[in-house]
Design a protein around this nucleic acid. Sequence first.
DNA 1: ATTTTTCATGAAAGCGTTTTCGATACTTGC
DNA 2: GCAAGTATCGAAAACGCTTTCATGAAAAAT
Lengths: 334, 334
Amino acid sequence: MEKQTVTIYDVAREAGVSMATVSRVVNGNQNVKPATRQRVNDVINKLDYRPNAVARGLASKKSTTIGVIIPDVTNAYFASLARGIDDVASMYKYNIIMENSDENDQKEMLVLNTLLAKQVDGIIFMGNRVTDKLREEFSHSRTPIVFAGSVDDQQSVPSVSIDYVKSTVEAVGKLIKEGSKKVAFISGSLSEPINGKYRLAGYKQALQQAGLKFDEKLIFETDYSYEAGIKLASQLKGTEISAAFVGDDRLAAGVLNGLTDQGVKVPEDFALITSNDTQVAQLVRPQLTSITQPLYDIGAVSMRLLTKLMNKEEIEEPIITLPYGLDSRETTQK
Amino acid sequence: MEKQTVTIYDVAREAGVSMATVSRVVNGNQNVKPATRQRVNDVINKLDYRPNAVARGLASKKSTTIGVIIPDVTNAYFASLARGIDDVASMYKYNIIMENSDENDQKEMLVLNTLLAKQVDGIIFMGNRVTDKLREEFSHSRTPIVFAGSVDDQQSVPSVSIDYVKSTVEAVGKLIKEGSKKVAFISGSLSEPINGKYRLAGYKQALQQAGLKFDEKLIFETDYSYEAGIKLASQLKGTEISAAFVGDDRLAAGVLNGLTDQGVKVPEDFALITSNDTQVAQLVRPQLTSITQPLYDIGAVSMRLLTKLMNKEEIEEPIITLPYGLDSRETTQK
DNA sequence: ATTTTTCATGAAAGCGTTTTCGATACTTGC
DNA sequence: GCAAGTATCGAAAACGCTTTCATGAAAAAT
């Protein structure tokens, strides 16, 4: 016995009303006589009627679904944002279609298009850079979008993040103040604005404030992985470098563990500050001093912003900067 | 100028064919003369036509979307599974609606229902227990479902996981063989079959094989968190217990760090084996010896199984058990 | 040359809702 | 009691696509 799906029409017939009325009670429209509402609700329960969201979406042109483009769910940083996004999304009755992009240009285009095809009401984009093609696609579509945990360097898209320049100035400044003359700057690709533009600027600014000269050789561009950190650690050993600012926690954990495994004492011989305050930073020993970010909130606020955009509400400020902190743990003097 | 969406009808008119023909070329149906196909494709490009997936879904009764119920994306274990799921899902052109359940019964029911309302073609469920209500809901619906990383203890639902009993026997066996007479069993709620039924059974079996007596006092039931581990560590210190099997990596990391911080030497004074082989296990120092699970594959295989179910293909074996391993790292003798 | 098959296409009926617009039935005010 | 307003409801037209069925044309078989 194939379960025949019960439609709004069945309910209407059974309750002796029109589809319009059923639709009204389902959607909480007030123009229904209480008695009728009751009758319809009874039938709904009796028949176990569940509105078909797809049909609803077609008729209303709203899918109550938003698309989330995430580099990799497996990355704790992005996963935390995602959690914030999801929580406020469900608060507002939206569902989330999540797509891993691997920060691959082609894949990003692809998922963006399928998201648009699915008629998502809005999109949250996570990633460290935006290609021109992608930006163009964004502006073409009528679908609102917000960047979470990153800024469009043209500042043309609503976004929420922390102040990467200032936080880096502070972190590097601390390293210098605690006695390091040679502070390495370790990050992912410098072609990503967050690194090449903001963090690097902060690094230089901190140097300048301390009257130190910028040295190209202290800049290490690598990828965001634990392994890359381990490898970097061997390069670092035996140099004059005695501290490092690192743009990613897993990378930092690699550097730390690599250093420690080689007998370098952290923080005595080498100080370290990382950037994302992911749980990783607290799991390793010694615990990583880190810039702290309201990860969950970045996601949550992004989603909240998106709901406003979708409602065409007036937005006071589309580029939101959330407060950050600097938590001194065990890889700096204190 | 509000961008007027271009529909299949516009393409049809412009190309001088019927909607049916356009639909055919869009869907790769072979019954179209190459010349016509070409003409239609040209118009599609010219007009930048993108099929509306919602309308498509309504007409075809397929959403090409699957629902994923995950306890918490922020948990590395589940995130890894999710990644596997997503990769093969997109391989098969499915999109994923992801819902965090927090393993909360009520929330699970809720998300299941919205998933069903959205007409997902299939569901992947992650979680450690299934309430009867949920099970009933599953069986009511015609939507195929598979459990990833857990088993329905009634074995009535397709699932993919590892053999929790055998892997635990092996892990606990190793601990005993290496000299521990008192091995603690530390896990999350015993009401979850994975703990109370399978792992515990494995634990007892290992004891029995070694001729050891089961001792209620060695069973520690807590929650899966780093903090819980830290707390547990103080309880453990000073007892005769000299080893522990732990059901979760973050929990294990907590125990390890807690022990170490109190001056207990691991593995010399206390040996530890954890269960999920999440990256956490390798980040901590000493690195946690762990049962290894093919996390990504569990997700991937689950999704593959689901595609078969959705295609109504013949399934040889709906309860899939993937191979596990035991990686001796630094929290056991070797 | 005629009959069959096969191919290519179009007309139109859904798919299950929402929503507009008008109609009817009640209230209310006077 | 009657006009005017208001609350309640229904008919039916979308929404943008897929899919069945019929049809005519072209190809193959006789």
